[in-house]
Design a protein around this nucleic acid. Structure first.
Length: 779
DNA sequence: AGGCCTCGAGTTCC
DNA sequence: CTCGAGGCCT
C-alpha cells in the first residue's frame, strides 16, 4: 500500500467505526457484531500507530483515554450555565403557566417543550467548525472545569458533527449520566475488585468524570443527552426548542426520546403524569421534568429573573422520604453564636445518600414539629440537598415518652447565657470570643478559601489548636512555631489514643507542620476586601468587603470612619454601617486587629479613597446619613441651603429655626442632647475635610459625564467590573437598577428583569459593542 | 408602604 | 441551596 492508500484506509475505518458507534450508542440499533467492531478498531489502531500523520481528530481511537492530568483547568463559559427555578405542587405549575401567559400577553394556551430532567451532571460541549474542542463542567455556572479528555471517552458523543456545513462555534448543553444497568454493573465490578461502591448513579457519573486519569473514565459507561444551547456562531439559532433538538439529532447528537411539545397547563400536567408513571421503568434516573416555552421568540420575550430563566421550570418529583429514629438532639454553636439544634439520626438511606444529621433550624421549629429523642420521624432531602425532618410519627412515640425538647439556657460549650432577642428566631450564645466554639468558627472563617485562604488549616487542626491553647485569636496563627504544631499534634494523639505519628513518622509530621506554617505565612498579604471579609464583622461578606475596599481604599481609614460616612456608600444602610462601626469601636476587636497588623498582616492593593467618594461627601447626604429620626434628606437640604453645615449644626444652641417643623426640630434637639453626638458631628466634619483634601480632583468632565448606565447579563468579553470601570473613567455613572433616570442599559447574554424594565421605561439599550463604540467614539 | 433583588448566614454530604 | 434581612426604587 502507498501512503495515500494508508491515508484513505484510516479515513474509511474512522468513518465506518464512528457510524457504528452512533448506531449503537445513539440510535440503539447495532449494525455489526461487537467482535467485528473490535477487529476494525484494532486495525485502525495499528494503522494509526504506524502512520500517525494520517490519524484524524475524530478517530474513535481518541476515546480510550490519555495519561493522567495534573489537574483540571478552569474554563469560563461564554454564555453562563444558569439554573432553573423549581416547582413542586400543582399550584407552582399553575403559577408558572400564568406568568408565562401574562409575560407573552397570550390569549391561547402556550406551546411548551417538555422533557425529562436527568439526574446527572450538566456539561457544555464546544464544537468549533464541527469538531469537539472542549468539554466543561457547569461549575458555579460561570466557570467550570475542563474535562475534555474524559468526555472524549463517552461513545455517544460525536467527536465530529454530522454535517458538511458546521457552525463556526456551537456550545451544546446537555447532561452526562450513567444508566442504571451500567451503574449496577460498575458496582459489581467494584465489589469484586474490593473497591468502594458508588452510592448512586449520579455520584458514579460524577466520580468517573472527575477522574484525572481518563483511562479510568473510558472504562466507565457514561451516557450523554443534549438539551440546550449556549453560544452559537455561524448558523441561525433554531426558532424553537423542538427545532433545536431536531437539529441536534441531525448532527448526530443524542437527544432523549421523551422530549415532547405540549400545550398549556393541562398539557404540562399530562406530561408530568405520563413521565411519572414511566419513571420506574426508565433506564436512567430522573428527578423531574422540565418545561420551556417552545418558541425562542417567547423565551426572549420572557427573559430572566436574576439567575434563572422565566421561560422555564423544573417540575420536580416529590422528594423521596424515609423513616428513621432520633438518637439525640444536640446543639451547634455558630460563628455568630447562633445556637442551632441538630437531630442525630439513625443512619438512613434517602435521596441517594446516607443521612445521619438533620438541622432543626431553631427552637420554634423543634417545638412546632415537637421532635423528641426516641421519636420516629419522616426525613427527606429538601431541595435535593439538605436533609430535613418533615414530621414525627406520633403513633410510634415510645412509652414512656421523652420530655418536650427545650433549648439549653446556657451555652453547652462555654456556659454563657443563651439570649434570644425580641422578635428573632435565633438564640445566641452571649459568650462572644470567650466561647471556644465561636472562637473556632471565627478562625475557621478567617482561614476560609474566600477570606485569607490558608490551605491546610482544617477543622480538626483548628479544634486542637484552640483546645490546647495554642491559638486564642486569629493573630496567634502568625506566631505559631514548628514546635507548637508538633506539640499540638502530640497532645491530640495522646488524647485520642491514636499512635503518636510524631514519634513513629517524625519526618512526615514535620513536613506537614512546615507546609502549614508556610501556608499561614503566605496568607499575610490578602487583598483588602478579603481581609475585611475575614474579620467576621456581622453583615460584612464578600460583596460588602469589596464595596468598602473600593470606596475607602485603606484599612486604616476603614477602621475609623464613623457610621454616618459608611452609610452613604452604595448598598450600605443603617444596620450594616452601625455593625461595621461598632465592630471597629470595640476595644477587644481593636486589640485583635492591632495584633494582626503587628504580626505582619498587611493587605495588598491599598489605594487612596475613590474619587467617586467626592459626591458622596455632599453635606446634605452626610447629614441625612446621621440617622436622626424625622430628619429626611429634604430637611437636610433645607438646612444646608441656609448655610447650616455639619460644623454649624454641631454648635447650634437652638433648633426651632430655619423653618423646620416643630416635630423635626424637637427630634434634632433630642439627638443633639445625647452625649457625644456634637463631638461626633465635629469629627465627621473634620474627616470630611481631610478626605476632600486628599481625594483626587473629580474625574475630568468626560464625554459620559452625567450619563447613568446600568449593566446586566453577561457581556461577551468584559466583566461587569471592567465595563463599569471604563464607564466611570469617562465620567459616567454606574447604577444598580434601572429607573427613569437611567440613560443606557448595557445588556449582555441572559439579561434579566432589568432588560424588561428598561424596555418598559424606554431606556436606550445597547450591547457590549455599543458600549465600546460609545466609549471610543468620544474617548 | 410595598415589591424586587441581592447579600449574608447557616447547613449537609461526599 | 434556602431562608431571612437589608437596601433601594416606585
Amino acid at each position: 500500500m502507498t501512503e495515500v492508500d494508508f491515508q484513505a484506509r484510516i479515513a474509511a475505518l474512522s468513518a465506518e467505526l464512528n457510524r457504528h458507534l452512533h448506531a449503537y450508542h445513539v440510535e440503539d440499533a447495532p449494525t455489526i457484531p461487537d467482535a467485528e467492531y473490535d477487529r476494525l478498531f484494532a486495525e485502525l489502531q495499528q494503522l494509526e500507530a504506524a502512520h500517525p500523520q494520517w490519524a484524524l481528530p475524530d478517530s474513535p481511537t481518541q476515546r480510550v483515554g490519555a495519561a493522567p492530568l495534573p489537574q483540571f483547568d478552569q474554563v469560563t463559559h461564554s454564555v453562563p450555565m444558569l439554573s432553573l427555578n423549581n416547582g413542586f405542587s400543582d399550584e407552582d405549575i399553575e403559577n408558572f403557566d400564568r406568568r408565562v401567559r401574562e409575560g407573552l400577553d397570550a390569549a391561547a394556551a402556550v406551546e411548551y417543550a417538555a422533557e425529562v430532567k436527568y439526574d446527572g451532571l450538566a456539561i457544555n460541549l464546544r464544537y468549533e467548525h464541527g469538531l469537539l474542542v472542549q468539554a466543561a463542567t457547569r461549575g458555579d455556572g460561570y466557570t467550570g472545569e475542563d474535562v475534555t479528555t474524559n468526555i472524549r471517552t463517552i461513545r455517544s458523543i460525536p467527536l465530529r458533527l454530522n454535517t458538511d456545513t458546521p457552525p463556526a462555534v456551537l456550545d451544546v448543553r446537555g447532561e452526562v449520566l450513567m444508566f442504571k444497568a451500567d451503574f449496577e454493573a460498575l458496582n459489581a465490578r467494584q465489589r469484586d475488585a474490593g473497591q468502594k461502591e458508588f452510592v448512586n448513579p449520579r455520584n458514579a457519573a460524577a466520580g468517573s468524570l472527575r477522574q484525572l486519569d481518563s483511562r479510568i473514565t473510558a472504562q466507565r459507561k457514561l451516557s450523554f443527552f443534549a438539551y440546550g444551547v449556549g453560544a452559537l456562531e455561524g448558523a441561525p439559532m433554531p426558532v424553537s426548542h423542538a427545532a433545536l433538538l431536531d437539529w441536534y439529532r441531525m448532527l448526530g447528537l443524542p437527544v432523549a426520546k421523551e422530549a415532547a411539545v405540549v400545550r398549556g397547563y393541562e398539557g404540562l400536567m399530562a406530561y408530568y403524569a405520563r413521565i411519572g408513571a414511566a419513571r420506574p421503568t426508565m433506564p436512567y434516573e430522573i428527578d423531574g421534568v422540565v418545561y420551556k416555552a417552545n418558541l425562542l421568540q417567547d423565551q426572549r420575550m420572557l427573559g430572566f429573573v436574576s439567575r434563572a430563566p422565566r421561560f422555564a421550570l423544573a417540575h420536580k418529583f416529590p422528594a423521596e422520604e424515609a423513616l428513621t429514629t432520633v438518637l439525640a438532639i444536640e446543639v451547634q454553636v455558630g460563628r455568630t453564636g447562633a445556637i442551632t439544634p441538630v437531630a442525630r439520626l439513625a443512619s438512613v438511606f434517602v435521596g441517594g445518600v446516607n443521612v445521619t444529621n438533620a438541622t432543626l433550624h431553631n427552637e420554634d421549629e423543634v417545638r412546632r414539629k415537637d421532635v423528641r429523642v426516641g421519636d420516629t420521624v419522616i426525613v427527606r432531602r429538601a431541595g435535593d440537598v439538605i436533609p430535613e425532618v418533615l414530621a414525627v410519627v406520633l403513633e410510634r412515640r415510645p412509652q414512656p415518652e421523652a420530655a418536650m425538647y427545650v433549648l439549653p439556657r446556657v451555652c453547652p460549650v462555654c456556659g454563657s447565657h443563651v439570649v434570644r432577642e425580641e422578635g428573632e428566631a435565633i438564640a445566641r450564645c452571649s459568650g462572644g470570643l470567650f466561647c471556644s466554639a465561636q472562637r473556632k468558627e471565627a478562625i475557621r472563617h478567617f482561614a476560609g478559601r474566600r477570606m485569607m485562604d490558608i490551605e491546610g488549616l482544617g477543622d480538626r487542626y483548628i479544634d486542637n489548636l484552640v483546645e490546647h491553647g495554642k491559638v486564642q485569636r486569629v493573630a496567634d496563627l502568625y506566631a505559631l512555631t514548628l514546635d507548637d504544631l508538633l506539640e499540638m499534634k502530640r497532645l491530640a494523639d495522646e488524647r485520642d489514643g491514636t499512635t503518636p505519628e510524631t514519634v513513629v513518622q517524625g519526618k512526615v509530621a514535620t513536613k506537614w507542620a512546615e507546609n502549614l506554617l508556610e501556608a499561614i505565612a503566605a496568607s499575610r498579604n490578602p487583598p483588602l476586601e478579603r481581609l475585611l471579609f475575614a474579620l467576621g464583622i456581622r453583615h460584612v461578606g464578600e460583596s460588602t468587603g469589596k464595596t468598602l475596599a473600593e470606596w475607602l481604599g485603606r484599612f486604616e481609614l476603614i477602621r475609623r470612619v464613623p457610621s454616618a460616612l459608611l452609610r452613604v456608600l452604595p448598598d450600605i444602610g443603617g444596620v450594616v454601617a452601625d455593625s461595621i462601626a461598632e465592630f471597629f469601636a470595640e476595644p477587644k476587636n481593636q486589640q485583635a486587629i492591632d495584633a494582626l497588623l503587628a504580626a505582619g498582616v498587611a493587605p495588598q492593593g491599598e489605594h487612596a479613597p475613590s474619587a467617586k467618594l467626592r459626591e458622596k461627601l455632599d453635606p446634605v447626604k452626610l447629614m441625612a446619613a446621621l440617622g436622626i429620626p424625622k430628619l429626611t434628606e429634604a430637611r437636610c437640604k433645607q438646612l444646608v441651603e441656609q448655610d447650616v453645615t455639619l460644623q454649624v449644626l454641631a454648635h447650634l444652641p437652638v433648633f426651632n429655626v430655619f423653618g423646620l417643623p416643630a416635630g423635626v426640630a424637637e427630634s434634632l434637639e433630642n439627638w443633639m442632647r445625647e452625649e457625644g453626638h456634637r463631638e461626633q458631628l465635629i469629627a465627621l466634619d473634620h474627616l470630611r475635610n481631610d478626605l476632600l483634601a486628599q481625594l483626587p480632583e473629580a474625574v475630568a468632565a468626560g464625554p459620559l459625564t452625567g450619563k447613568t448606565f446600568v449593566l446586566t447579563g453577561t457581556l461577551p468579553s468584559l466583566s461587569r467590573d471592567q465595563a463599569g470601570a471604563m464607564i466611570e473613567a469617562q465620567g459616567g455613572k454606574v447604577s444598580g437598577s434601572v429607573s427613569k433616570k437611567t440613560h443606557y442599559l448595557v445588556a449582555g447574554a441572559d439579561a434579566g428583569s432589568k432588560l424588561t424594565k428598561a424596555q418598559d421605561l424606554e431606556v436606550t439599550i445597547i450591547d457590549e459593542a455599543g458600549l465600546l463604540a460609545l466609549l471610543s467614539a468620544q474617548g
